[in-house]
Simulated assay, not measured.
Amino acid sequence: MRAFFDEAGPALKAATVASISAVGGVSHASRLLGIGTAALSKYSSTSGEWANSFIRVDLAAALDRAAGHDFITSTMRGLVDGEKPAGFGQLTALAVLRLDGVLDDVVREVAQAIEDGHADACERQAVRARIVPAMRALAALDALMAGL
């Protein structure tokens, strides 16, 4: 079991951070879920003390639902299916350029959506579709920076 957490832990922690960020941060997520901020901080913490403390499945589902994307539950599903968790990889110039491209996609989609001074429902959905990969990439980078 320990080997599983060594491999899956960083991906689950990064997905938890992404989902918490998507709902507006730890304080807002705490209110949404009815649990303390300390518990949520523990679920997203990469410190040795909390490395094997993960968010409960019911809370993960509720958090993802509130976030509007299945950050945690899709990561769990991938782990169950035997997928190797995706990380940021090594911090290289190429990796940073790929991240830049993902973030540029968000900016271009927003600019296109507001070009006429109004973003309709379809345009907002297109922007959100670009935001999700960017959040995943940023969460993976955050995990790398945190030393996961």
Results as ranks from 00 to 15, higher is better:
Leu59Ile: 05
Arg130Asp: 06
Gly117Trp: 06
Ala62Met: 13
Thr46Gly: 14
Glu83Arg: 13
Ala60Trp: 09
Ala18Phe: 10
Arg108Thr: 12
Thr75Ser: 12
Asp70Asn: 13
Thr92Arg: 06
Ser21Arg: 15
Val127Trp: 07
Ala3Trp: 01
Arg124Pro: 00
Ala119Met: 13
Ser53Pro: 00
Gln125Lys: 15
Val107Phe: 05
Leu141Thr: 08
His118Arg: 15
Ala51Gln: 12
Asp6Cys: 01
Ala95Gly: 10
Phe71Asn: 03
Gly24Ser: 10
Tyr43Met: 02
Asp142Cys: 00
Asn52Lys: 11
Arg136His: 11
Ile114Leu: 14
His118Gly: 00
Gly117Tyr: 07
Leu59Gln: 15
Ala38Thr: 14
Ile72Pro: 08
Thr37Ser: 14
Gln112Met: 11
Ala137Cys: 08
Ala8Trp: 02
Val26Thr: 13
Arg77Pro: 00
Asp6Lys: 10
Thr73Met: 15
Ala61His: 13
Phe4Asn: 00
Ala60Thr: 09
Ala22Gly: 06
Glu49Ile: 05
Phe5Pro: 00
Phe4Lys: 03
Ser21Gln: 14
Glu49Ala: 12
Leu12Glu: 06
His28Arg: 14
Ala119Arg: 09
Leu32Ile: 13
Pro10Leu: 01
Gln125Ala: 15
Asp64Ser: 08
Asp58Asn: 12
Ser44Val: 01
Ala134Val: 04
Gly87Asp: 07
Ala95His: 09
Ser21Asn: 15
Ala15Leu: 05
Arg77Cys: 07
Leu32Met: 12
Phe4Ser: 00
Glu7Cys: 02
Ala139Thr: 10
Ala29Gly: 04
Leu144Met: 06
Ala60Phe: 08
Val110Asn: 01
Gly25Val: 12
Leu59Asn: 14
His118Asp: 14
Leu12Pro: 11
Ser27Asn: 10
Leu138Ser: 04
Ser21Gly: 15
Leu32Thr: 04
